[in-house]
Nucleic acid binder design. Structure first.
Length: 241
DNA sequence: GTTGAGCGTT
C-alpha cells in the first residue's frame, strides 16, 4: 500500500517531514518509499493529489522517525534522479494545520496574528493557493502566473461546471410561473427583464470594461438602445427560455 | 498526451 492504509494524518508529533519537490507527476508514494526507506525509518509517505482529478501535484511528503535519518536522506536523495527527473528533497516548513515546523519537526502550533508576529517579519506567505483559488475561484487578483496549464484547466473546468450548475438549477423565485402566480406586479417583471438584459449570456459575469457597463446618462450601449427599441410587453412574455 | 513553483491527507 502506498498510503500505509491511513486515511488522515497519522502522527506528526514526533516525526520529521520532508518535502520532495521537482518530481514527476507520475511518481507515486510507492516509488519514493524504497528510496527514502533506505536511509532511515520512513513513517509515512504522502503525495498531495488533486481533489477532482486525483492526479499527483508533483511533490510529496516523506516523514521520518528521526531527524538524523531525515537529514541523511535530504543530503543523499536531494538531486537523485527519479523516473527521469531530479527530485528536490528538503525539510518541510509548514504542516497541514499550519503548524510551524522546524527541520520537519513541529515546534509550535499555528501562532495567531499577534505576539510572535511582531517579532518576526511579516513574510508574504505565498499560499496563493490551491485551495483558495478553488473555493474562491478568483481569476482576477491572481496575476501570479505560475502555472499555465494547471491553472487554466482548473479555471475552465470550474467555470463550465458552475455554468452548468447554475443553468440546470433554478430557484422558484426566479421562475416566471412563480412570479406570475405570486402576483408580483408586471413592473417588476419589466425590471427583471431589464436585469436579465444586463446579464444576458453570462449570469455572473460583469462587464470588464467600465465605460460600457456604466452608462448612466448618455452613450447608451447597444443593448440598452436595442432594448428600448423593442417592446417591453413582448419582452415580458418572452422571458421564458 | 500537456504542466514545474511550491508546503500536506477521510
Amino acid at each position: 500500500m502506498s498510503h500505509f492504509g491511513r486515511s488522515g494524518p497519522p502522527d506528526i508529533r514526533d516525526t520529521y517531514s520532508l518535502l520532495v519537490l521537482n518530481m514527476t507527476f507520475r511518481t507515486t508514494a510507492d516509488d519514493l518509499f524504497p528510496l527514502f526507506d533506505k536511509y532511515g525509518e520512513v513513517v509515512d509517505v504522502f503525495i498531495p493529489r488533486d481533489r477532482r482529478t486525483r492526479d499527483s501535484r508533483g511533490f510529496a511528503f516523506v516523514r521520518y522517525k528521526y531527524a538524523g535519518e531525515a537529514q541523511k536522506a535530504v543530503e543523499k536523495l536531494d538531486g537523485r534522479n527519479v523516473d527521469g527527473r531530479e527530485i528536490r528533497v528538503q525539510f518541510a516548513k509548514y504542516g497541514p494545520n499550519a503548524e510551524r515546523i522546524h527541520k520537519g519537526r513541529i515546534v509550535e502550533e499555528v501562532p495567531r496574528t499577534r505576539g510572535r508576529s511582531r517579532s518576526r517579519s511579516p513574510r508574504p506567505r505565498y499560499r496563493d493557493g490551491y485551495r483558495d483559488r478553488e473555493y474562491k475561484r478568483r481569476s482576477r487578483s491572481r496575476s501570479r502566473s505560475r502555472s499555465r496549464s494547471r491553472g487554466r484547466h482548473e479555471r475552465d473546468r470550474y467555470h463550465d461546471r458552475e455554468r452548468d450548475y447554475r443553468r440546470s438549477s433554478r430557484s422558484p423565485s426566479e421562475s416566471p410561473d412563480y412570479r406570475r402566480r405570486t402576483g408580483i406586479g408586471k413592473y417588476d417583471d419589466e425590471r427583471r427583464s431589464r436585469s436579465r438584459s444586463y446579464n444576458s449570456g453570462s449570469p455572473i459575469r460583469r462587464s470588464p470594461s467600465p465605460k460600457r457597463s456604466s452608462s448612466p446618462h448618455g452613450t447608451p450601449c447597444k443593448g440598452s438602445a436595442d432594448e428600448k427599441n423593442h417592446e417591453p410587453s413582448s419582452r415580458s412574455r418572452s422571458v421564458s427560455p
